[in-house]
């Protein structure tokens, strides 16, 4: 596994990548919250949100195919809701689709979750693929997220690919001995694998801690370069929030 598995493409160079993590986080989190609280019938508002996301995506130079493949994670959830749609008969017009009757109410629910989850997931993916993990954690810390979380997450980021590699080595060793993990009673073997993964991870944690102490670790991570909010960051933040808010409020007035 590559070490940039978690934040792939975060080291590209683009106008979006060079923004301060705090500006990106505030702007995109605001977009998500505003989007999620928009009533589903506000079609134009969603066009505005989608437009903003597309512009940021285009400016970020992250490959479109990569973004699309990551956005697909919400698909199972949307399908799950789609499966339940025929059971919703809250009223409104209904359409006959063979054996099922689909109410317009149900379709509205489906549209609601599909558009909101797609826009929100795109925002999160854009944030993580334009900001290196340590920078984002440091930005969150300066936005007053408790440093406990950012420090633990920093360790997690540093070791996740080492441990996943270890897990994959064990999986490969099992598969080469004809274990495929196909049935639920084989969960026992997976249990043995997880147990030895834990013991190895724990040993590693102890070694890492001793090595870090030997190098003067005091519970905090010094940063190589201190980022500061520049004019461009404030402009980006306020432009995104203003456009999105205008889209949201325009609906209220109508």
């Amino acid at each position: 596994m590559k070490h940039d598995y978690i934040d792939r493409y975060s080291k590209l160079e683009s106008p979006v990548h060079s923004l301060d993590p705090r500006a990106k986080a505030i702007a995109l989190f605001a977009l998500i919250v505003i989007c999620v609280t928009t009533p589903p019938r506000a079609w134009w508002a969603f066009c505005v949100y989608a437009g903003v996301v597309l512009i940021i995506a285009a400016a970020s130079r992250v490959p479109v195919s990569y973004l699309l493949s990551r956005v697909l994670v919400v698909l199972p959830f949307i399908l799950m809701v789609a499966v339940f749609i025929p059971f919703m008969h809250k009223g409104g017009t209904s359409y006959d689709l063979g054996p099922f009757a689909v109410s317009s109410e149900g379709l509205l629910v489906l549209w609601n979750v599909a558009i909101k989850s797609t826009i929100s997931v795109s925002c999160l993916i854009l944030l993580s693929s334009t900001t290196p993990f340590p920078d984002l954690m440091h930005g969150l810390e300066r936005l007053h997220v408790p440093s406990f979380f950012t420090t633990v997450a920093a360790f997690m980021y540093r070791y996740i690919f080492v441990i996943v590699d270890e897990a994959q080595r064990m999986k490969r060793a099992c598969e080469s001995r004809n274990f495929r993990g196909r049935w639920i009673w084989q969960a026992r073997t997976v249990g043995y694998m997880v147990a030895s993964l834990f013991l190895r991870s724990h040993d590693r944690a102890e070694r890492v801690y001793q090595a870090m102490c030997a190098r003067g670790f005091d519970g905090t991570f010094p940063l190589q370069r201190e980022s500061s909010m520049r004019a461009a960051d404030y402009v980006f933040m306020s432009v995104v929030v203003l456009i999105v808010l205008t889209g949201r409020l325009a609906v209220l007035w109508k």
Partner: peptide
């Protein structure tokens, strides 16, 4: 460090 590596471990174990 122990909590961080346990978090990474739970993350990795969720992949099995």
């Amino acid at each position: 460090p122990l909590l961080g590596i346990t978090a990474a471990f739970i993350f990795a174990a969720q992949m099995l």
